[in-house]
Write a protein that binds this DNA or RNA. Structure first.
Lengths: 213, 213
DNA sequence: TTGTGAAAGTTATAACTTTCACATAGTCAA
DNA sequence: TTGACTATGTGAAAGTTATAACTTTCACAA
């Protein structure tokens, strides 16, 4: 598989995740063949960019027919690195953390919440589904022993910096930050993505205010 | 306020929301003056693009000094339309819906969850903080009587299409979709933004797999 | 086996975005 | 009052991305 990785922008990758969702929806309703036009109608992009994005990674389509949903699912998962189950841990088992751990999208993408951590004695020892909740004091030990590469952060914002600064960046490679603290995208070789649930609503607010298309 | 709205891209607007978060953080730690370099170090962008973005909407900075945090907060909120409180309703009062309604980011952005709706008899009549939970059967009546423009959707994916299709698009202007169903960005004049909590983790997965910077 | 139609893959170009570098102007200290 | 300093605002250039239009190839039917 020789992808032209060096030329691929993050915008392309983001769109691939959209295509994947569209294919999942189509698959689940029994479709076996999907055209770039079909995908475009679901996710609101133009067919040409969908074809171009997919062609960057190889010719997966059947000319004159479209894309086979199973094949496309496999290839998209493969490109994104989602074909293998990956263990992640959750830090912060409050309302948001709980909702995240139960969110079906993580399961679809093969992410497995192997453990959760909190500082609330009432939560420690409990669980979220099959995910046990441990004391935050055991966090770094757990990361080291289990070589945890990906962390989902859903603690109060005030606690975020302290936790991130103490992570062992030789082991942890990715952080998904749901707090209101902002971290730069790259910190000591760790990828950090900040997610603000309200962000999209702020964008909608602007669009509504200015009557944009 | 004559902004050059027609020329502003969504990418700019998304960055403005980042700047706003950076300014909030700086303000809360007592800073009164912030340079484009300061902001760049927090959010991982280049100072030049920050200056350019802000200059699109007017000259808010003080040459040789930087940007006054209070003024910048005001202007950013004003540009995005966040200076006034806006009522939104939540559809789906499960784990995710509850977490969303309690998420501090919505309060910061002046969004007020005025009501929630669910079909679970055990939840109806209850509340999330100060937000009462009503039966989903009353949804459209409530939207009409209270002229609700913005909706946050956090129901199971299978229920999403049915709800969206029945919304009165003469009243509702914006939908924040947290389900795994995908809707195009524009539907009958309604702005729809799909949020997949797992999306950013999928992007991180790709970055990790390919050792990108 | 061959012809037709349909949609993938590809290319060239226009449109847009980012970046650099510098002139500008405000601040502060002497 | 003056001069040095600093970071903004801006214009031009470079770089990037999306789009339309085009070519290719596959599948199916006659």
């Amino acid at each position: 598989m020789d992808f032209h990785y060096d030329k691929i922008s993050e915008a392309v990758i983001r769109r691939l995740t959209d295509y994947l969702r569209c294919v999942r929806i189509a698959s689940s309703s029994g479709e076996t063949l999907l055209t770039s036009k079909d995908i475009s109608e679901t996710c609101g992009l133009k067919p040409s960019i969908i074809r171009k994005d997919l062609a960057l990674f190889g010719a997966y389509g059947i000319k004159g027919q479209g894309y086979n949903t199973n094949e496309l699912t496999y290839h998209l998962n493969n490109i994104l690195g989602l074909n293998n189950i990956k263990d992640v841990i959750l830090i912060g088992a409050g309302h948001l953390g709980t909702a995240i751990a139960r969110y079906p999208g993580f399961i679809n993408a093969n992410f497995n919440f192997i453990a959760a951590f909190d500082n609330d004695p009432e939560k420690i020892g409990g669980n979220i589904g099959h995910t046990n909740i441990y004391s935050i004091k055991e966090l770094n030990k757990y990361i080291k022993e289990n070589q945890i590469e990906i962390i989902v952060l859903a603690v109060p914002s005030s606690a975020a910096s302290g936790i991130v600064e103490n992570l062992d960046s030789n082991i942890v490679k990715g952080i998904l930050n749901f707090t209101s603290m902002v971290f730069p995208g790259r910190m000591n070789d760790m990828y950090v993505h900040n997610i603000d649930l309200a962000k999209e609503l702020e964008v909608i607010s602007y669009c509504m205010k200015n009557c944009l298309t």
